[in-house]
Simulated scan of single mutants.
Amino acid sequence: MKSMIILLSCLTLGSIDPPIKHDMFLFEDPFLIGQWSIINPEPRNEHIDFQSISLSLESNYRFNISVKRKGHTRDSWAGEYSVENNQLIIGANSVHPQIFQYRVYPNQLVLNGVTLYKTMPPHLSGYWQSTEVRGADVMSGYISTIDLILNPDFYFSIQSTATNGLNKYREGVYYIEDNNIYFIFKDGEQASQFALKNNQLVLSSDDADMYIAFQRKH
Rank of each mutant, 00 (worst) to 15 (best):
L57I: 06
C10Q: 12
L57A: 15
Y117Q: 06
V202F: 07
G71F: 09
Q35M: 01
D23I: 05
F31R: 00
D29M: 03
V202D: 02
S125G: 14
F194D: 08
S15A: 13
F100G: 00
G71Q: 13
I184L: 14
S9E: 11
S205N: 15
N112I: 02
S130D: 12
E84G: 00
R170D: 15
F154Y: 13
E177T: 03
S76I: 05
N107S: 13
Y211A: 15
L55I: 01
P152L: 10
A92K: 05
G79Y: 08
Q51H: 01
L109Y: 05
Q200A: 15
I5Y: 10
F27T: 06
N60Q: 08
F50W: 15
Y142W: 04
G165N: 01
I176T: 08
F183T: 07
S205Q: 01
P18M: 11
Q159V: 03
K217E: 14
Q129S: 14
K2V: 08
W128Q: 11
T145Q: 14
F154G: 00
H72M: 14
N180L: 05
M210S: 13
S144L: 05
F194Y: 15
Q87N: 09
A162S: 15
N60I: 03
R103S: 09
E132N: 06
N167V: 03
M4H: 04
T73R: 10
L148H: 08
E80P: 02
S144F: 02
M210Q: 06
F50T: 01
G172L: 05
P121I: 04
F156N: 08
L13S: 08
R69P: 00
D147V: 13
V104W: 07
L32Q: 03
F194C: 04
N85D: 15
R62K: 12
I16C: 08
K118G: 04
G14M: 01
L8S: 01
I143C: 09
D187M: 05
A213C: 07
Q101C: 11
E84N: 07
S82K: 00
F100C: 08
E171N: 03
L11A: 09
A191S: 13
L32K: 03
S54C: 09
M120K: 07
C10F: 03
D209H: 06
I6M: 13
M4C: 04
I143H: 00
L203S: 06
K21Y: 02
M139L: 14
F100S: 00
L203Q: 02
L88G: 05
H47V: 12
S66C: 10
A136C: 07
G135R: 12
L7Q: 07
I158V: 09
Y211C: 08
G141K: 14
L148C: 01
K68R: 11
L7R: 06
G113M: 12
R69Y: 09
W128S: 15
